Amino acid sequence: MKNKGKIYVIGIGPGDREQMSLMSLKAIKESEVIVGYKTYINIIEDLIKEKEIINSGMKKEVERCEITIDEAEKGKIVSIVSSGDPGVYGMAGAVLELVNKRNSDVEVEIVPGITAANAAAASLGAPLMHDYAVISLSDLLTDWEVIKKRIDCAAAGDFIITLYNPKSKGRITQIEDAREIIMKYRKPSTTVGIVRNAKREGEQVKITNLERMLEHNIDMFTIVIIGNSNTYESNNMMITPRGYFK
């Protein structure tokens, strides 16, 4: 009887080894095959020297999921890696959807990781201490009008807003539009944190405000956290009160 395969969908966190969970390391060690975007494979290269490695470039997510399931259906233990957490703009959903679509009997375990939002928040201080929304400004898979509506609703509800994928070489106006929408509800002095390469080599941390945020370097390696009406800066830390000291 053929051995039943297994898939680990792993979040490797921001990229720094100290930010990876013990479960992620254990799953990688247990796996026979490692599948992932080549940039993420490079991050864990020293951990997988004895493994079968399958990597690919950007925009090959479905292909990577298909390969992962194919290898697991051969009875292998396979890890497919994502940065951050695989369930937050990662590979978890696609893997589970394809397993369901193919009616496969392979076991799937999702291994969580530190998200870019949580990594950036830690570098800034404590900006996510109250209700917050995470919104990607990439319109590759989501219509821009839908994204704008989500920004508007989050801003109107006084949520702290964390922006993923804020700006790229081919997508430069979305961050400007997002700021304009948010400024309908927030003061120009609203505290904003900008973190590039959160919790990995070359990290840059800047605390500014809504009025001046676009003066700073923002790209696809950046997380932008826009505070709510109570967020403030103190001693180079961004703080959102939870309400403990009323």
Results as ranks from 00 to 15, higher is better:
106 V>C: 04
60 K>T: 15
241 P>H: 04
166 P>E: 06
220 M>V: 01
109 E>P: 06
214 L>C: 11
101 K>H: 12
14 P>C: 09
192 V>G: 05
134 V>I: 13
134 V>M: 14
226 I>K: 03
121 A>E: 02
98 L>H: 07
44 I>K: 00
105 D>F: 07
153 C>V: 15
100 N>Y: 12
111 V>Q: 02
158 D>M: 05
203 E>P: 09
34 I>G: 10
137 L>I: 05
147 I>Y: 04
114 I>L: 13
125 G>C: 10
185 Y>N: 07
142 T>V: 15
208 T>D: 06
242 R>Q: 12
60 K>A: 14
23 M>D: 12
41 I>W: 02
60 K>H: 13
198 A>T: 07
160 I>S: 13
170 G>S: 09
229 S>H: 13
176 E>S: 07
80 I>W: 03
145 E>G: 03
104 S>E: 12
99 V>Q: 10
48 I>G: 02
159 F>S: 10
140 L>Q: 04
28 I>A: 06
8 Y>I: 07
51 K>Q: 08
162 T>Y: 00
195 V>I: 13
79 S>F: 07
159 F>N: 13
208 T>N: 04
142 T>Y: 01
208 T>K: 03
141 L>K: 09
178 A>S: 11
163 L>N: 06
174 Q>P: 02
147 I>E: 04
21 S>N: 05
160 I>A: 14
201 E>P: 00
30 E>Y: 10
18 E>R: 14
